[in-house]
Design a protein around this nucleic acid. Sequence first.
RNA 1: GGCGGCAUGGCCAAGUGGUUCAAGGCGACGGAUUGCAAAUCCGUUAUCCGAGGGUUCGAAUCCCUCUGCCGCCUCCA
Length: 502
Amino acid sequence: MALRLYNTLTNQKELFEPIEPGKVGIYVCGPTVYKDSHIGHAVGPVIFDALKKYLVYKGYHVKLVVNITDVDDKIILESQRLGLSMRELAEQVSKGYFEALDKLGVDSIDVFPRATEHIGHIIELIQRLGENGAAYEVNGDVYFDISRCPNYGCLSNRKSEDQAEGTRQLAGGGKRNAGDFALWKAAKESEVGWDSPWGRGRPGWHIECSAMSMHYLGESFDIHGGGMDLVFPHHENEVAQSVTATGKPFAKYWLHNGLTRVRTKAAGGEWKNEKMSKSLGNIKPIRELLEEYPPQAIRFFLLSTHYRRPIDFSDDAIQSVLKGMTNIYRLLERLERLSGEDVYHSKGSVTTMEELARTETDKAFRNEIHSAHLHYLENLDDDFNTAGAIAVLYELCNSINRYIDQQRLETHPNKDQLTLALEGARTVAMLGQILGLLREPIGKTTGGDALAGQLMGLFIEMRAEARQNKNFALADAIRHKLKTLHIVLEDRPDGSTDWHKE
RNA sequence: GGCGGCAUGGCCAAGUGGUUCAAGGCGACGGAUUGCAAAUCCGUUAUCCGAGGGUUCGAAUCCCUCUGCCGCCUCCA
């Protein structure tokens, strides 16, 4: 099976072939850290973290780099407003960003380079551009001359001359072309700055990504990712300056994820969906979101839509995904309960299944697991269709539940069949884990609260007694009252009772 | 004005020419199971894929027109 990815550069799905066989370098544009991160900032990292995990599963050695842009006009302005230094603000915002990623299970990023740690590399790169005649200085500012890059516009498919109308003409500046962009900006007295051949200043917006990606991944690397809003001008400019500086291709595959949208009320009173954006002021800090929902559910939610499509964020949408995800966990719990074995940390064994499946029914079941496994990977190979893959997971869960019910394994346990079902559940967990899902049980009980467990044991015992005495009024009263505390009881065929929080 | 994307059942969401093409999830309804529930299973819930044309033996899937929404062209994941 071969992975195909949609490349923004060519506007089509292409067979993925790394520049160097077996090794993959991925660079993803991270946030400019001047305000709290919102869920949109987590989309890219979650998707590319999942993609890396999949590539690793396929046997590649992958290096994933996500940058932090920590020097920029907006950070300077915001820090002045807050009475902080630029560095202090950047650190503070970055910290929140990292905490969010950590909760979302984004743990495969190898480096988080910061622009301010690579000023030397940035200056070198600008100098190379100057040597190539593509950079020019005007009063301490240095601009990139897009007329020196014949392919300018190749990524975003636009021609600079078509852009004139409707575009704000930037005042002054002495730029040769309207589309020229700053590589280096002269610093004002009060602003942070670094010494450079052009005087004290700071990097322009795009140059840091070229400098850092090349530094960590080489002048040509495999995958460059980011939000769709970055295609122009950010990524277009990255391509232009990188190719012009090195004379080599820059990123081979450009992957762009859809933007997160949110329903907002327009001035006229009608609702509309628009992108979640710091500048539009319609953001919900990711910190708050992660307090409202299990982080695992947010990750599941983000991967339940194809990465190139926009995601409309709403409580209803997360709730329904949370419900669905919980049902998968229920199946995994069911098998741990029935088999007494761990399903999360043990890979499914094909040979075990081959040996155990003897009857036609068992063989058919085994085949369902195998084909689901294949189907799942096929989906991921097709432009990383995580939504399609997750659908396969649900189907597999249904197969396993059906098998357990039809073979009456709850009441008539058969060791081999139980093992077969267990291997199915392990397959579910293993497949989910390829995307960083289903890594460990989620709060079935109240977690480590021993007292709660003991109290629940008492309630269940009292209720069992009542039921034995046919005192159903009391038994039901106990259950109903627990329900008001969002505790649900489930009676098992063997007379035992489980409980979980809703 | 230019460039690009999207429009699938009550909601979310796969599918981009042809027995698995109308997946999957949530919700709803009916049934099995249960003392009753919960969970689980079974069944029903889009003759149709924004509208209208066209190409084709055949289209949600290709082409054209139209409508609506969104993104970018200025900072933005």
